[in-house]
Amino acid sequence: MRIVAVDPTSCVACRNCEYACAFKQTGDFDTKASNIRVNFYPEERVCIPWTCVHCGEGWCMEICPAGAILRNPETGAVEIDAKRCAGCKMCLLACPTGSIHFDKVELVSKKCDLCGGDPSCVKFCTSGALQFVEEDEAYSFRRESLDAKLIRLFGLTKRGS
């Protein structure tokens, strides 16, 4: 499946992705509604947009006590059915990357659904930092210098090392 991949070296922190996501959902530009969030790390001079990576075995999906989180068979996206969501917040506690948010008006959880296979955030990304690519390509445009920064920032290590 294809996911929204991030190349932080290209991100210019314009937050167009947040505006695009919020607008797609609400018809308004209040970025609080956005499912993609640009995180700023001024000391490292890095900004990283982050959204759901639609995990293979999504813990949110397995744990949902309402059976409201299902994989879309066409796009592969892990989606929340707002009509079934009870608002118990167990998925918020289950997601290790903080990619599920809570809709304070509807009182249900919400997350990236890849806009049905044509993600708005990617479409309106001004710098090419966001790309809609096959999962295995998602990590290919990380570069050595960036990797070093990420390791410092998150305590990350490269896959397999």
Binding site: L92, C95, G98, I100, H101, F102
Partner: peptide
């Protein structure tokens, strides 16, 4: 508190 606190606990879980 709010939902964002549950998000923090979720990130802390791993």
């Amino acid at each position: 508190g709010g939902a964002e606190d549950a998000v923090i606990l979720g990130r802390l879980r791993p």
